[in-house]
Design a protein around this nucleic acid. Structure first.
Lengths: 194, 194
DNA sequence: CTCCGCCAATAATCTAGATTAAGAATTAAG
DNA sequence: CTTAATTCTTAATCTAGATTATTGGCGGAG
């Protein structure tokens, strides 16, 4: 069933009655995205939290020189959104698109707020996943400040072992903050050493 | 009164009855820190959320070459903790110390969980401040990936105008990820240009 | 089959920012 | 007031990683 993955995702942190689960499920809007299709573009207002069921999305910005900087990959079982825009209701600077044909479930901001009201346990759920995301994000800030490109690549390999063989190197390079050429150089050095 | 600042901080996001406020207040442990005194050191388990009433704390790591990398400053009205350690119950890699003589209020993890149980509105409060912290942290990741040192310094000046004249340049350099020498060079170039 | 767009690899050159060193300016302490 | 410690500045050299350019492989479209 379409909602099985997301319900298990929620059940990791809170217990729902069947009625609560049905109430939640009814709010979810299934949506399909083709490879390279945008879910959100810079300047738009983000009105949904997105849960990935199949495929892979990415959130990134484009700087003044046209270079992409990837903030987040979202493979199945992950949430993604332009949090700044979603929370503030103002235009964001994030682009979100699909790296391959994907299926997602959307939770509208208004429904999410309704859900907090109807089933307060969801305050807890989103508090916990936001806390985890914050820990990850802060670790990434520290990695960017304290590790070399080589070490950042190795850290990425350890943290996302499934993504490493799945994503084009170009995307990984953009996530860890190096050029594709330099990532290639690092990889060949790593291979030579082992 | 000692708890006035923190109660206004909470009131920004949730409304409490006098009884709830008293219940919350009773959990807070006042604590004083001298300049350079550690609240938490690398390898310890973080058991409290810290709210700064007076002075200024900082959270940072020390890399394998002995260089400090500042993750967060906490002036009055801010929360700070080693979130990874606090959430996981495992030893963290963060150091937290006072940049000057400071006064803080501690909320023990156990009390915080009790509070979620007794006054569920606090789930909401901490969800919201965690969301805001996540937006800030992700913006910082993007700044580190896409901006030059110069631009990162200007962004810091805009975002923390009060801190800029208050903190030693050495600390600011460590936050934006450059050497004190290079920060000094950038500042003199900025002055020359204006 | 071939033409074209995407991806990876390699190499030469270039630059932002680190490193090192040394002196000037502040601050704190006796 | 004197000394010691810390912080800030300036300048010379050095390096990790960027930039630019070239090549080859590979899969899809006509």
């Amino acid at each position: 069933m379409l909602h099985e993955l997301i319900c298990r995702n929620v059940a990791k942190h809170i217990d729902l009655t069947p009625a609560e689960e049905a109430h939640f499920s009814a709010m979810l809007i299934p949506h399909a995205l083709r490879r390279k299709e945008f879910f959100l573009q810079e300047g738009e207002i983000c009105k949904h939290s997105v849960f990935v069921v199949k495929g892979c999305l990415r959130g990134y910005t484009v700087d003044s020189n046209g270079f992409e900087h990837i903030l987040q990959f979202a493979p199945p079982d992950w949430w993604i959104a332009d949090m700044y825009s979603l929370l503030s209701g103002r235009p964001g600077n994030l682009n979100i698109d699909a790296l391959e044909d994907s299926e997602v479930l959307l939770l509208a901001k208004k429904d999410q707020e309704q859900l907090y009201h109807d089933v307060p346990k969801f305050e807890r759920f989103f508090r916990i996943i936001t806390e985890n995301a914050l820990v990850t994000s802060r670790q990434r800030v520290l990695d960017n400040l304290s590790l070399s490109a080589q070490q950042r690549y190795e850290a990425f390999c350890q943290r996302y072992p499934t993504l490493i063989n799945y994503l084009p190197q170009k995307q990984i390079a953009s996530y860890i903050g190096v050029t594709p050429e330099f990532l290639s150089k690092m990889r060949s050095e790593l291979l030579r050493r082992q």
